[in-house]
């Protein structure tokens, strides 16, 4: 079932001199199977929006029905909600806390009252899915791992609860170029196996254009546009006006001004240029 957000508004520190409206009448439906990229300048409301989805920020205005759970109800089942919607925060490795990788990853399933055997099975599966060898890593301290490994452990801790929806806030920030590629491949792998719906916040439009199927653009607390990644070319000017970047592929395509050349993903564009060159010659 989808996550349906309607007319969501939110103001921080309401009634104080520091009052700031972070969200202003936002409506967005996240469908089953979406790979949604959320972009927008710092302070545009992206993080405030996703924090509403699993009830980390209490709904004050508007409505959210997340996979059938109505968050405007008096006492929504937040436990169930958080089991369904897994959240990976920015620099999630800073949230590791247990002495061993195994214990850290087991924390979620344990809180779900799973038996020891079930916990072990879930942790095993999650750690392997995160791209780490279970036997080699389970007894190590998460604090002695490399940055990329720590982040994988943190993600394993989230996917061990088998959320149907996975929300990631800047998952590739601070990683080296190869680490970034690996992170996105990991997200694709998770999407194909446990969490079929993925929402990613990122400042890197080239990454989003390469991996997401759909893009929602936040601007000053509102949604400026929501479109299929393939249609991003039409929004190039609007993105620039909002201080956002346009993917390199789209910039190149727009500069060439040839209607036969298409594609937003790098391979699509390259193929299209090669094909055009061969047929026009």
């Amino acid at each position: 079932m989808p996550i349906v957000v309607k007319n969501l508004s939110y103001t921080y520190m309401k009634g104080t001199p520091y009052e700031k409206q972070a969200l202003n009448d936002v409506s967005l439906t996240i469908n089953d199977g979406d790979f949604l990229g959320i972009i927008g300048a710092t302070g545009s409301g992206k993080s405030t929006f996703v924090r509403h989805l699993n009830g980390l920020i209490k709904l004050t205005q508007g409505s959210i029905i997340a996979d059938g759970i109505d968050l405007s109800a008096k006492k929504p089942d937040l436990k169930l909600l958080r089991r369904k919607i897994g959240m990976v925060f920015q620099y999630p490795e800073s949230q590791l806390f247990a002495e061993t990788v195994f214990k850290d990853v087991c924390y979620g399933p344990k809180n779900m009252k799973k038996s020891a055997e079930e916990c072990e099975a879930l942790a095993h599966e999650a750690i392997e899915l995160a791209g780490l060898d279970f036997e080699a890593f389970k007894d190590r301290s998460p604090f002695e791992l490399s940055g990329g490994e720590k982040r994988r452990v943190a993600i394993a801790g989230v996917i061990a609860c088998k959320p149907e929806y996975l929300v990631l806030d800047e998952p590739s920030a601070g990683l080296d170029p190869k680490g970034k590629d690996e992170m996105y491949n990991l997200v694709l792998k998770i999407k194909a196996s446990t969490s079929h719906t993925v929402v990613i916040i990122s400042h890197d439009i080239d990454e989003i254009a390469e991996y997401a199927d759909r893009i929602a653009v936040f601007d000053d607390g509102r949604i400026y546009a929501d479109f299929k990644t393939a249609d991003i070319g039409q929004y190039a000017d609007g993105l620039k006006e909002r201080g956002l970047d346009v993917p390199v592929t789209v910039k190149l395509r727009n500069a060439l001004k040839l209607s036969e050349i298409t594609g937003v993903r790098q391979n699509e564009l390259i193929e299209s240029i090669l094909k055009y060159y061969k047929t026009s010659k």
Binding site: P177, K178, T249, L252, Q266, I270, L274, Y277
Partner: peptide
């Protein structure tokens, strides 16, 4: 470059693949 976990800048990557593809 890849040995050190680095990549080409995106523009260079596209240029290189176009060249490898016969342009």
């Amino acid at each position: 470059l890849p040995l050190y976990n680095l990549k080409l800048p995106l523009v260079t990557r596209i240029a290189k693949e176009l060249k490898d593809g016969g342009l």
